[in-house]
């Protein structure tokens, strides 16, 4: 078969009477450099004034930074964020697929869910789940019109932790659904057709072809949501859970060291945010590798030898 290789371009013979080639001088950018220096100076003086300011109570910050109550609050905040985001992503994927269904009933159900959970304050939803026992004293599950029913006391099933997971997770699912839907819709329909024509089922083409290509669209806003959740989860203090912020508040309500303890909380929030940002950029790099102007690394044994 024809493999045409490009013929070499005709080389320009050096003629002696040509003018000399230009030497390019890059723009100096003095203005930018000056601005950078000024900004650095402002930042530095700002830091110095904070660090040297006794009113910030830095010794108190140091004293409480690794306090047991702060640590257990940090632990709750961390795992609650992870668990609710996992629920949000799974639920959001299901809702996004439902919302895109050609079946009107299915898409209506998904859209109604979104309408309700995005349309009411998450604080109200948390309190609602916490007080579910007042509305439904027993929770039953089973097959209608049969005797196959299991029933449990709502107060036993919906602990404060459970209410927090449900309230934050179900709410997050609604927001994640829109993010995931926009990602899935950004993938050209030709990709699914090609997958279909190769004999892939819908599920397989979604999982292998569509979702990986939707990822670059989905990840940045999902990172936003996760970092947002880190702080939104502090709402659980209304249902008597001690998250990071609430733990700090409990301590300063006794010793009145308000600012130092809020600084302690902020240090941990910033630490967690830094970790999440690092994770996000790793994931982005993974899914963005086909966008780089380079070949994939050669990692096939088969071709390494040749």
């Amino acid at each position: 078969m024809d493999v045409s290789s490009p013929s070499p371009a005709p080389s320009n013979e050096n003629q002696t009477d040509q003018p000399p080639l230009l030497t390019y001088v890059p723009i100096r950018g003095y203005g930018r450099k000056a601005a950078a220096i000024v900004l650095a100076a402002i930042l530095l003086s700002f830091l110095v004034s904070i660090a040297g300011n006794d009113n910030f109570g830095w010794p108190v910050v140091g004293q409480y930074l690794f306090d047991d109550r702060i640590m257990s609050g940090l632990f709750l905040t961390s795992w609650l964020t992870v668990v609710t985001m996992v629920i949000g992503v799974v639920l959001g994927t299901i809702l996004a697929i439902m919302a895109m269904s050609t079946n009107n009933v299915i898409s209506f159900v998904a859209n109604t869910y979104l309408w309700f959970f995005r349309g009411t304050p998450v604080l109200v939803q948390l309190i609602f789940w916490y007080n579910l026992a007042a509305l439904f004293p027993d929770l039953s599950i089973g097959i209608p019109f049969t005797s196959l029913w299991v029933s449990i006391d709502t107060n036993v099933a919906i602990t404060p932790v459970m209410a927090a997971i449900l309230g934050l997770g179900l709410n997050e699912g609604a927001y994640m659904s829109e993010i995931i839907r926009s990602g899935l819709m950004s993938v050209d329909s030709g990709q699914r057709q090609a997958a279909k024509s190769l004999g892939m089922t819908n599920g397989k083409s979604l999982w292998r072809i569509v979702i990986p290509q939707a990822m670059p669209i989905i990840i940045p806003p999902t990172g936003n949501q996760t970092i947002g959740m880190l702080k939104t989860s502090s709402l659980v203090s209304v249902i008597a859970l001690s998250d990071l912020l609430y733990s700090a508040q409990t301590i300063y309500s006794r010793n009145f060291q308000t600012i130092p303890l809020l600084i302690v909380a902020c240090i941990w929030y910033l630490t967690a945010t830094s970790i999440l940002t690092a994770i996000q950029s790793r994931i982005e790099r993974h899914y963005g590798r086909s966008l780089l102007q380079t070949d994939a690394p050669v990692r096939w044994r088969l071709f390494r030898s040749s």
């Binding site: 030709g190 990709q191 057709q193 090609a194 004999g199």
Partner: peptide, 19 residues
């Protein structure tokens, strides 16, 4: 899907998997 697996199709816009 099994029937389609043996009937290949080539598209105007190639539709290669970009990732």
């Amino acid at each position: 899907a099994r029937q389609r697996a043996r009937i290949a199709m080539v598209f105007q816009n190639f539709n290669l998997f970009g990732h």
